[in-house]
Design a protein around this nucleic acid. Structure first.
Length: 652
RNA sequence: GCCGGAGUAGCUCAGCUGGCCAGAGCACCUGUCUUGUAAACAGGGGGCCACGGGUUCGAAUCCCGUCUCCGGCUCCA
């Protein structure tokens, strides 16, 4: 008996019945046999999805296979990172008797393992060298990973006996999750050296595959992500096939940290934070330039699309929040004040304010859609642990807008919002990720309303041919939403824009418009912010550009650097001419060397340095140095101004 | 909010097994230098050692509490 498998190059390989991935690799060549880590098996004819398996697993007849080696990219890295998680657990169990283990997957960029340490034991990063040393011993020993499939009761018994409660719970949940017609009979255990773990696999043949690793940080994490459950200790690490790759990875992380907007914000004098008002940025003059340029862009583009700008109060009688439903759901995250004995609350949202405006006039169907925009200042008492520079603040300036429209206008309006959003993001070269979030458990409104709203949003996305992720249960309490997400310098995802459909607020506030039939009808409300908040958007911008903002956004667009005191007067004239042309220019006529001035200018990330000495004064020119180091001498002032203005206008 | 870590000059950090007037570099000020594309030289000023309490003859250093920040987790209208 023999089986045949197909290799990635299309060739058939004939193997004895029961042959494994390791046998296949050996049949292809001894080099591959040594390098093989796992095997990818797919069997489309048998209706089987492509699956990564242990090398020791027997291959099915007729399958397509690919041997995974260190050169297989992310897939191979994820494999050894998962291996490394097991080795981490091995070391921790040896060093901390009585520790309970939970789960330890590979994640983007590395791996983690969650532990429950015995009472009174807490782990800090100081323990890493000892744990790493123990891990290295297990890796050097090249301990094989061996898989055993064990009947459920036997596996459960084993973990009960060992006091590994989390593993017992995992087994029980696996049993409960199995389809009734195919109950779970066995689970797989993987053994490496002294350690055995409940694990689906696969793993590399031995711990020796882990070429280089590092433990990175320790953090708390709720068991199963549930804040009502116990908090476990999570150890993060990463692993690579070579020390060189690990070093390169750590270097890139270090570089990313240099782009952190909190650091750049301080270094470039853009904004500050103070203990006196946690979570609320203090914008400095340079940062305010960016904020204002964005505001101008926002205002002009809104106007061009039929939005009318409004401005509403920040403090309201709490009755408003009770009526809107915010009180019920968010009162713990709102700020309140007693005003002459009258309870008032700072707005956490602008929508009820815009509803007040809408209600101040009567509306005909001919007026719709009514589009109000506001750079609305809202306050949300975000939990202390989530504050993060400009990316998560308590004082938020939203680029908010509310559209009141008829049912028939909904799709067109949502599509217009999405196109508007993409238009704005394109200016910065952003490629946002889209998410559609549907009805949450805690919500207001009827199921029919939710059905309609969700269909409308999905329809708009599909009509635009946009790819999106579905986020069930993540919608706002009054309606489903489409969110636009961006990633920061170290890969954390942040929501920027949002388009939310709302049939509930109009109902609660009983707003209406007069239809063609002369009867009163309920409008639909669209809540939307495209940048999200100016604060968060600026934070993402700073990291995206690593502080080197395009000319139109740069707080100082050009610095005039004088070579000596003899050029000071001419330098002043140059600076003034550029300012007269509407550019933001500063003069550096300090008694310092040119080298020093160039260095300081480079560190300030100013796009242009204009060097002037006696030669330039004579000729009426400047020597232009761009922040990328490119130099050009003898540029006439008029030409320079024209060029810079062109660049500003193009928002490059 | 939860777990862990940290708060010393404007910034980055040293000092912290308790005891010499609390230090360095950068920044800042003054003077000299008059500079041709990433750091001239010299001198000087600057600190409720986060805040409150405790232990001690004595606390930046040890203990407790509070606040803030950092890394995660949960949350994010």
């Amino acid at each position: 008996m023999s089986i045949a498998v197909t290799l990635p190059d299309g060739n058939q390989l004939s193997l004895p019945d029961g042959a494994t991935g390791a046998d296949a690799a050996a049949a292809i060549g001894p080099g591959l046999a040594r390098a093989a880590l796992a095997v990818r098996v797919s069997h489309p004819e048998a209706g089987e999805q492509s699956q990564l398996r242990d090398l020791s697993s027997p291959l099915p007849d007729g399958a397509q296979i690919a041997i995974i080696t260190a050169k297989s990219g992310q897939e191979a890295l994820a494999l050894i990172r998962h291996d490394a998680a097991h080795v981490l657990a091995t070391a921790v169990m040896e060093l901390y008797p009585g520790v309970k283990i939970s789960i330890g997957p590979a994640i983007e960029g590395g791996f983690y393992y969650d532990f429950d340490f015995p009472e009174g034991v807490s782990l800090s990063e100081e323990a890493f060298p000892e744990i790493e040393a123990r891990m290295r011993e297990h890796i050097a020993a090249g301990e094989p990973f061996t898989r055993t499939d064990v009947p459920v009761p036997k596996a459960r018994e084993r973990f009960v006996a060992e006091g590994q409660d989390y593993k017992v719970e995992l087994i029980d949940d696996l049993v409960a999750a199995a389809e009734p017609d195919s109950p779970l009979r066995s689970v797989s255990l993987y053994e490496n050296g002294p350690f055995t773990d409940l694990c689906r696999g696969p793993h590399a043949p031995s711990t020796a595959a882990i070429g280089a690793f590092a433990l990175q940080s320790v953090a708390g994490a709720y068991w199963r992500g549930d804040p009502s459950r116990r908090m476990l200790t999570r150890i993060y690490g990463t692993a690579f096939f070579s020390k060189k790759d690990l070093a390169e990875h750590l270097r890139l992380l270090e570089e990313a940290r240099a782009r952190d907007h909190r650091r750049l914000g301080r270094e470039l004098g853009l904004f500050a934070f103070s203990e006196i008002s946690p979570g609320s940025p203090f914008w400095k003059p340079a940062g305010m330039v960016i904020f204002n340029e964005l505001t101008e862009l926002w205002r002009a583009e809104n106007r061009a699309r039929g939005y009318r700008e409004v401005r509403t109060p920040i403090i309201y009688d709490v009755e408003l929040w009770k009526r809107s439903g915010h009180w019920e759901k968010y009162k713990d995250n709102m700020y309140f004040a007693d005003v002459d004995g009258r309870p008032m609350g700072l707005k956490p949202m602008n929508c009820p304010a815009h509803i007040e405006l809408y209600k101040d006039e009567r509306h005909s169907y001919r007026d719709l859609p009514v589009r109000y925009s506001e750079a609305g200042i809202v306050h949300r008492h975000e939990p202390s642990g989530v504050l993060h520079g400009l990316l998560r603040v308590r004082h938020i300036t939203q680029d908010d807008a509310h559209i009141f429209c008829t049912e028939e206008q909904v799709t067109d309006e949502v599509v217009a919002c999405l196109r508007f959003g993409f238009f704005m993001y394109e200016i910065f070269g952003f490629e946002p990720r889209l998410e559609l979030s549907t009805r949450p458990e805690k919500r207001i409104g009827t199921d029919e309303m939710w059905d309609r709203a969700e269909r409308a949003l999905a329809g708009a996305l599909e009509s635009e041919g946009l790819a999106y992720e579905l986020n069930p249960g993540d919608g706002a309490f009054y309606g489903p939403k489409i969110d636009l997400h961006m990633t920061d310098s170290i890969g954390r995802s942040w929501q920027l824009g949002t388009v939310q459909l709302d049939y509930s607020m109009p109902e609660r506030f009983e707003i209406s418009y007069t239809g063609a039939d002369n009867a009163e009808h309920r409008p639909v409300m669209i809540h939307r912010a495209l940048l999200g908040s100016f604060e968060r958007f600026v934070g993402i911008l700073i990291e995206h550009y690593a502080g080197r903002l395009p000319l139109w956004l740069a707080p100082s667009q050009a610095l005039v650097l004088t070579i000596s005191e003899r050029a000071a007067a001419y330098g002043g004239q140059v600076a003034q001419s550029l300012r007269d042309a509407g550019l933001r220019v500063q003069l550096d006529d300090r008694s310092e060397s040119l080298g020093r001035k160039v260095r300081d200018a480079e560190l300030s990330r100013a796009p242009y340095m204009l060097v002037v000495g006696e030669q330039e004064a004579q000729a009426g020119t400047v020597a232009v140095r761009r922040r990328d180091g490119h130099q050009e001498s003898g540029v006439h002032l008029d030409e320079l101004i024209e060029r810079l203005l062109g660049e500003v206008a193009a928002r490059r």
